[in-house]
Amino acid sequence: MENTVLHKAGTRGHANHGWLDSHHTFSFANYNNPDRMHFGVLRVLNDDRVDAGKGFGTHPHDNMEIISIPLEGDLEHKDSMGNTAVIKRGDIQVMSAGTGIQHSEYNRNADRLTKFLQIWVFPNKRNVTPRYDQITLKEADRQNKLQQILSPNADDAGVWIHQDAWFNLGTFDKDFTTTYNINQKGNGVYVFVIKGDVTVGGIALNERDGLGVWDVDTFSLQANSQDAEVLLMEVPMTL
């Protein structure tokens, strides 16, 4: 495939604050790489580990679609809209920050880490009314297939955001092969390997590697290890 960008896991930005260990695929906070500002409207992909009893104090966001995907442990969320919730593996959380929200996120467990992916997507509408949602998905529904976890449509599978984006999760047996078809012409897909080894369109990827693909209608994905776990984020390529 010609139009690709490969981000090996070890080339990501890294910030260790003690209680928080974070790897940044794109520029974030003190990690500023002009070659890694975004992939289309995908602005932030942070791979976070939060120590037991620690977390992010109340802080503001606006005009951003924020998606959290827990990988291990629990994360307690509180926000200025009055929501208090705990998300854990199998859950997907979404916030449309819109005109502005404040929220905090904490690992309330006294004895174990929380690991989660925090993803920011530029919205296609500014200054919308802030919104919070979370859902619980069956992990069995992504075994050897792609499970849609996010779309632009409130009545479709998964959560929805103010953007023409589609996210899928899949867990695959070794040597299992599937095909991904682009939902909207002009979109690209950022593939993030949560666990294991896969090949995408002939490009070998390992754990926590990322690969952006664009100007294609379809591509193949093959698992090269047992229980390989992959997140596919299809997004518009123009801001």
Results as ranks from 00 to 15, higher is better:
Glu2Ile: 11
Asn3Tyr: 14
Val5His: 08
Thr11Leu: 01
Arg12Val: 06
Gly13Ala: 07
His17Thr: 14
Leu20Val: 07
His23Pro: 06
Asn30Lys: 14
Tyr31Gly: 06
Asn32Pro: 02
Asp35Val: 01
His38Ser: 09
Phe39Gly: 05
Leu42Lys: 04
Val44Leu: 06
Val44Gln: 08
Asp47Met: 09
Arg49Asp: 13
Lys54Ser: 13
Phe56Gly: 07
Gly57Pro: 11
Thr58Phe: 10
Thr58Met: 15
Thr58Lys: 14
Pro60Thr: 00
Asn63Gln: 05
Ile66Trp: 10
Ile67Val: 15
Gly73Ala: 07
His77Asn: 09
Ala85Asn: 12
Val86Glu: 08
Val86Ser: 12
Gly90Asp: 11
Gly90Arg: 14
Asp91His: 13
Ile92Cys: 12
Val94Pro: 07
Val94His: 09
Ser96His: 03
Ala97His: 00
Gly98Phe: 00
Glu105Ala: 07
Tyr106Phe: 15
Tyr106His: 14
Asn109His: 12
Ala110Asp: 12
Arg112His: 13
Leu113Gln: 13
Leu113His: 07
Thr114Trp: 02
Lys115Ser: 13
Phe116Gly: 05
Phe116Arg: 09
Leu117Gln: 09
Ile119Thr: 06
Trp120Phe: 08
Phe122Pro: 01
Thr129Asp: 00
Tyr132Asn: 01
Lys138Cys: 10
Glu139Asp: 11
Ala140Leu: 07
Ala140Tyr: 00
Asn144Cys: 04
Leu146Arg: 12
Leu146Met: 13
Leu146Glu: 05
Gln148Ala: 09
Ser151Cys: 11
Ala154Met: 14
Asp156Lys: 15
Asp156Val: 14
Asp156Pro: 09
Ala157His: 15
Gly158Val: 10
Gly158Ile: 03
His162Pro: 05
His162Gly: 08
Gln163Ala: 12
Gln163Gly: 08
Asp164Gly: 06
Phe167Met: 11
Thr177Lys: 10
Thr179Met: 09
Thr179Tyr: 04
Tyr180Phe: 08
Ile182Lys: 02
Lys185Asn: 07
Val189Trp: 01
Tyr190Pro: 00
Asp197Gln: 08
Asp197Thr: 02
Val198Trp: 04
Val200Thr: 04
Gly201Ile: 13
Gly201Leu: 11
Gly201Thr: 05
Arg208Asp: 03
Asp209Pro: 04
Gly210Met: 02
Asp215Gln: 09
Ser220Gln: 15
Leu221Asp: 08
Ala223Thr: 10
Ser225Gln: 04
Glu229Leu: 12
Leu231Gly: 02
Leu231Phe: 10
